[in-house]
Structure formats: C-alpha cells, structure tokens
Design a binder for these strands. Structure first.
Lengths: 159, 159
DNA sequence: CGCAAATAGCTGTATCGTACAGGTAAATCT
DNA sequence: AGATTTACCTGTACGATACAGCTATTTGCG
C-alpha cells in the first residue's frame, strides 16, 4: 500500500496514505458504532436525522432546500427525512410566510431534547473511548478533524 | 457548522463534543465525497467492496466469515459483496482445501489494481485538499485518527 | 399585465448497503 | 451415529439516498 514518491524526506507522503486509510476505516467503524449504539427501543435518530436536527439547532429554522444544500443531500431525501421527523414530533413544518411554496422547518423542544440526548450519549462514548488520552491529544484531534472537514467541505462544495 | 449550542459541556469536555461533532460531519462529508468521486463510468468500488479488497490485500486470502468478523459486517452482506466482486472479476472464490464448507476469497490482479487505483485517487484527493497543511499536521492527523480507530474498534469489538 | 421560466416541495421508483431469518452442507462433539 | 455448531447462501425487508416527474408558487420579461 505505498507508492514511493521518492521525493525528499517524504514522511508527509505516507501520511496522506495513512489518512486515507484511517478515514475509510473510521467511516466503517462509525457506521458500525452508530448501528450498535442506536439499538432497539431508543428508535433513535438515523444518520441524517441527527445532522438535520443539529443543523436546525445551530443555524435556525429554514426550509427544505436550504437544508438540502447545506447537507449535500437531495431535496427529496430531506423531504422524507423531515416527514419522518415530523411524524415523530421532532420537527415542525410551517408555511413560509414570505414564500408560498416554501415550508419552514423548525425543531420542536422534543426534537432538541432528543438530539441533545444522542449528542450526549455519543460524547459520553467518546469520553469512554478516549479515556486515556491526554487533553492535549483530544484537543488536537478535534482541531485537526475540524480543519479536515472544512477542507473537504469547501472542496466538495464549490465544484 | 458551529457547535456552540445546547450541549452543556464543561470546558474540559468540550474537545469531546467537538470530536463528536467533527466525526459526525466527517461521516457525512465522506459519504458525499465518495459519491461524488466514484462517479459515472468508473463504476468504482462501493464502500464495503473497497475495504474488502484492502483487507484481502493486507491480510491475505481468507473466507467469508473471517472477513465478516473483521469488518463488522453480517456474513450475508459479505457474501453478496463478494459475489458482486466476483462477477466483476475482482476477487476469486476457491473451495477451502482444509474445510469443505468454506470458500477462500482472494483478490485477483484486476481487483488489486482497481483497489490501488481507488486508493491512489483518494490519496491524491487528500493531497489536494491538504495541500497547505504542514507535514507535521498531516502526520499528527494520521496518527491520531489511527489511535481513534483503534480505540473505537476495540470498544466495538469486545462488547 | 400575462405568460414563460425558475423554484420549492412532494411522490414514484430505483439502487445500494445492510441485517435478520431460514435453509443446506460440512465439520465437530459426545 | 446423532446432535450441535459452523460456513455459506438465499429470501426478504428496511433505511438512506438519488433522479425524474408532478404541482403550486414566485419571478422575470416583453
């Protein structure tokens, strides 16, 4: 799994490969973890539902298209997610007063509560898992991940 | 996406919250990126197929159950993935000489080639995206991700 | 103003990845 | 040898997603 580039002191090259590997792995593990974590009775939030609620929480009520654009999802997907969330009482749809076509989605208190619970559970999980990490390492990971996401996002977005 | 809201995490805890946020985000972005990257004609490898090939490459030919256990997937899922990979000529099935029930899966040259191509493309992508990172930062990210995965994995596994 | 084009959202349909339950065959245990 | 376990496959179902097509509304333009 290495393509020797043989330029200079190439430790940076192999980190790209490692990053690729680890991100792929994390995706798998994250999936598995989510599946295992959000088990039976909880009937917790699916992947997208969680991010939708988080985004509504962070960025305020907004319509389906805005959500879709922001989350890099098809409008129809968001429509369905939103329908499910509404069915479960986690968000509310209201006609957009400024645009007769639009619907404004806002989180309900129950939705925020549910989201916070999931968030807390996951955060707890990380606390558990990273119990023996130094605060510095945690902080560094958080920062680097954030930078990675920002880079990935801007790349994905304007292209 | 700012995480300033609604968790009530103590400042010392905040890196955990940030990690949670960023991992969730990375999952979404990774999905989107994969979807965008592996576009049309390539008919590239799906998520699982890629990891299967990588694992076969890294750990050698093995049977379906071993793969399933290792990848945290149901046997049936692996069976189907493997069937698809076989149909596409990327892996080969052979009866296990030591166990009449088993089938040993090995990557074909074409499979390895395909895998390497995807890997290279992704690595290139990361190189592109992280162009302005210092080698140190890249290296640190790779290392921390690896540690995170290891922690997540061992947690997921024996439980 | 009135109609064409764009936009917002929904619904139908398809695909993919995955799981669980059930089947058959082979191996292992007693 | 019979019972149990293991390995794999198949049927079926579900969830997340995309794309295409529909309707209602808004916007832009002659």
């Amino acid at each position: 799994m290495s393509d020797d580039h043989a330029t200079g002191a190439a430790p940076g090259d192999s980190s790209l490969g490692r990053i690729e590997t680890e991100v792929a792995l994390l995706m798998r593990l994250g999936e598995a973890t989510r599946r295992a974590t959000g088990s039976a009775e909880h009937r917790v939030l699916d992947r997208a539902a969680y991010v939708i609620l988080r985004h509504l929480d962070a960025a305020g009520p907004q319509n389906v298209s805005a959500l879709a654009a922001r989350l890099n999802l098809d409008g129809s997907t968001v429509t369905r997610q939103v329908s499910a969330l509404q069915r479960d009482g986690l968000i509310a749809r209201a006609p957009d007063p400024a645009d007769g076509r639009g619907t404004v989605i806002s989180p309900t208190p129950a939705g925020l509560h549910r989201m916070a619970a999931v968030q807390a559970a996951r955060t707890r999980l990380y606390g558990d898992i990273l119990a023996d990490w130094t605060p510095t390492d945690r902080d560094t990971l958080a920062t680097l991940l954030s930078r990675l996401n920002q880079a990935l996002d801007s790349r994905t977005r304007h292209r």
